[in-house]
């Protein structure tokens, strides 16, 4: 075993995801306390240059046409092989669409404990956010080595940028006959409004109860000259189009004013709006995690406050 920290980096459409840099920055701290090195792991095809800005001691690059795009099966096989042969102290994987398919797979294939939803970690403790952000827990792992699935946005990305790592090309295992095959990417259809360009967003969540109540929030958005956005369940229920969804699997927004109406503030929602300049939350649950991120909070019923607010503007 080594005291090195593996960071499983990820990219989509030729762009490294910020979470990779966030993990690299954190890994630097961890490596310093364990007395090891930061090893970035990069998979792709002709993608070596994506590592140019990695702040790491070394990059292990696995290049293969079958790895050009993310493939849960091919990626897990390749990464598990690297983890098993290098035996790093810790492996950081993003809690992202790709990372979900990697972290637990490594836990089984490399027989290592996995701690998920990690919001902070150091050599002494690993903290996770559970219950939609309503509780934090510290975990203690058995044995010397572990995998942490890290929440995007938990650490600053800048600390993980810099470059200068040596890149080592590694052998890729047999990838013929994979049962999962990548076909293509599908881009979303353009929507009527671009919520990433709005100064004011009134964002509605499940607290609105049903589709017929949407005019209450739409009227507020209209009055403010802004647009209506939403949490995921509203889109899943088809009350608003996908282009209005804020969060992990939606869009990242940074309006001047973000008014979250009946939104609990699950980590996946927070990821998309925490950088808004002024966040106002209206939620009847005083313990809703959204209040940890909002600048101003109101615990009155949205059905009373929102119409009154529209009236006053």
């Amino acid at each position: 075993m080594s005291n090195n920290i593996f960071v499983i980096t990820e990219h989509l459409k030729g762009q490294v995801d910020d979470v990779s840099y966030e993990m690299l920055g954190k890994a630097k701290e961890l490596a310093a306390s364990y007395g090891g090195q930061v090893i970035a792991v990069l998979l792709g095809s002709g993608a070596k240059s994506l590592a140019d800005d990695f702040a790491a001691d070394k990059v292990l690059y696995a290049g293969h046409p079958q790895l050009a795009e993310f493939n849960p099966e091919g990626y897990c096989k390749t990464i598990a092989g690297l983890v098993n042969s290098h035996e790093p102290k810790a492996v950081l994987v993003a809690y992202s669409s790709q990372g979900v398919d990697i972290a637990a797979a490594l836990s089984v294939e490399c027989d290592l404990p996995l701690v998920a939803y990690v919001s902070n970690l150091n050599a002494e403790s690993i903290t996770s956010q559970l219950y939609g952000g309503k509780m934090s827990v510290e975990s203690k792992v058995e044995g010397e080595r572990y995998i942490a699935a890290v929440l995007p946005g938990a650490f600053p990305a800048d600390a993980g940028k810099g470059g200068g790592a040596t890149v080592e090309e590694v052998a890729v295992p047999e990838l013929d006959g994979l049962k999962v095959r990548f076909k293509h990417l599908i881009e979303p259809e353009g929507g009527d409004v671009d919520i990433t360009q709005q100064k004011v967003l009134v964002s509605v969540g499940r607290g609105i109860q049903n589709e017929d109540n949407l005019p209450i929030v739409q009227e507020l958005a209209d009055k403010l000259g802004g647009a209506l956005s939403s949490s995921r369940p509203i889109v899943d229920s088809k009350w608003l189009p996908k282009t209005r969804q804020v969060g992990k699997s939606g869009l990242k927004v940074k309006p001047k004013v973000y008014i979250a109406v009946g939104i609990s503030g699950a980590p996946e929602h927070i990821e998309g709006m925490k950088d808004a300049e002024c966040i106002i939350a209206i939620n009847t649950d005083p313990n809703a995690p959204i209040f940890d991120y909002a600048h101003y909070g109101v615990t009155e019923d949205l059905f009373d406050v929102v119409p009154a607010l529209t009236e006053k503007l």
Partner: peptide, 16 residues
């Protein structure tokens, strides 16, 4: 392969 050593409500307790 791991256990909880502590559970607590997130400290920030509302910047709002």
């Amino acid at each position: 392969g791991s256990s909880v050593s502590r559970m607590f409500k997130p400290e920030s307790g509302g910047h709002a």
